[in-house]
């Protein structure tokens, strides 16, 4: 428990969580400058309500909740309704399994551990570019779940969406992510060199 409002405590928490907050902000916004601004607005709001934080262990998630709220408010100010941004009106896309696609296509015929080697060919930068290809409505719940560790119920509260909708967004998000991994691997020539081998620059795939 934090007995008193403590400037040092907030600053320590903010500093420790800065890389994670920036990462989330980078996915919630389009540019570096917007991400920087979102982090700053989050800090200001956190500062105003710091006295309400009773358990310092809850600080990391508390900051992310604040960031998500600030992001939703910004969407509204820009004339977008968060619920519309996050609810998918399109019909169910065709089922896609990366595991099965790799079995069928056998892109690494020399490998005895193809599925592991396929994922091993992606650097962190590759994965981040792949995630940028996943539509926002799927990317946000997916990252809240797997990058920041929120449970489905928590995401439902955070985004003001029914739990069933969050399940559906996560399910579709995983399929979009798997499809995007496969497409990126093919377009960038990631698999041509073989896992672990030196690869040429892939300028086309890296451009946004």
């Amino acid at each position: 428990m934090l007995g008193t409002v403590d400037r040092t405590s907030l600053q320590e928490l903010a500093r420790a969580e800065l890389p994670g907050l920036y990462a989330l902000a980078r996915y919630l916004t389009r540019t570096r400058a917007e991400a920087e601004e979102l982090v700053q607005d989050t800090m200001v709001r956190a500062c105003r309500s710091f006295a309400s934080l009773n358990d310092v262990k809850a600080g990391p998630k508390w900051l992310r909740v604040i960031m998500t709220n600030v992001w939703r408010d910004r969407l509204r100010r820009n004339g977008r309704r968060p619920e519309e941004v996050l609810v998918d009106p399109s019909p169910e896309p065709e089922h896609f399994s990366l595991y099965q696609t790799l079995v069928d296509e056998d892109p690494l015929p020399w490998s005895d551990t193809m599925h592991v080697d396929f994922l091993g060919a992606f650097s962190a930068e590759d994965i981040q570019l792949v995630l940028q290809r996943v539509p926002e409505r799927y990317r946000v719940p997916l990252l809240l779940r797997y990058m920041d560790g929120f449970g489905t119920g928590e995401i439902s509260e955070l985004l003001s969406l029914p739990a069933g909708t969050v399940y559906s967004l996560l399910h579709r998000g995983r399929e979009h992510f798997e499809r995007a991994l496969w497409e990126y691997a093919n377009e960038s020539g990631l698999l041509e060199q073989g896992a672990g081998a030196e690869r040429p620059p892939r300028k086309e795939a890296r451009s946004r």
Binding site: M43, C47, A124
Partner: peptide, 24 residues
């Protein structure tokens, strides 16, 4: 592998911002 790294210049700006925070 999903977390983008924070550029040094952004880190500097945000840390300076944090230094100026005052919950009181």
């Amino acid at each position: 592998r999903s977390r983008p790294e924070m550029p040094t210049d952004v880190k500097d700006v945000l840390e300076e911002f944090i230094d100026g925070l005052d919950p009181t």
